[in-house]
Amino acid sequence: MHEFLLAVTAAVYFGSTVAYLGYLLVGARPQTARVARIAFAVGLALHSAAIAVRCSHGLPPTISAADTLSFYGWALVTGFLVVQLRYPLPTVGSFLSPLVCLLVLMSLALPKPITPLDPKFATIWFPVHVTLAVAGDVAFVLAAAVGLMYLIRETSLKTKHISPVIDRLPSLDLLDRINYRLITVGFSLLTLGMLTGGLWIFLDPKLKAAVHDPKILWTVSTWVLYAVLLNGRALVGLRGRKAALMSVAGFAMVVVTFVGVNLLGQGFHSFRQ
């Protein structure tokens, strides 16, 4: 049932991706954006059902690699639709939807073992810590998408290269503003995620060894990068192109941390246990 629902979800997301790309590349028709948004919302409902089925086996959606990829996809769509309420910009969807499709397809391709839940996860700290961390990552991914859009638009304006496709992107100021807000939100969530993780280790004596987990080092580096970016903006006006570049770099670090530590690495955060 889960596999079937997830496959249907992937198909619906794919339809949405086609519409979002059509909006950007072919013609910015409001109807196309509406179709894409509705498809995304329908996909999200199906995706939620798929995840709920999986959870009914007693497995939180962030234990195995396959489930986590799917959960990230779900969280990205949710985050995107929330941002759309404030900033209705379909072109952000054009950049995000292919990534969502990729995540769900990867999840479909990977095995999904049903293993008994490790007792160390049977605590309230686990869902709180993971939710905050994933939500933070979602904000950073969205910020990176907006940052990438900024870089494309900025390059086109600097080089005076005129293209109807690039002209469909929002203005530089708006992209910069959204990028900043997303990073502020992401940074707060990441900070809370790190604090809850730290408290969890502090309160559970069995987890002393987790302090040396590579994920913690990587995450602290990511946190520093975003801290520099936010402070730089407030103090010396680190904005525009450099901020966009840093938000894309931050995304790269998030991906490296996730792939390198969770998927391929060893340790407390690894899926390979």
Partner: peptide, 8 residues
Amino acid sequence: ELARKIFD
């Protein structure tokens, strides 16, 4: 038109 691409 250009100003709007920069400043919204």
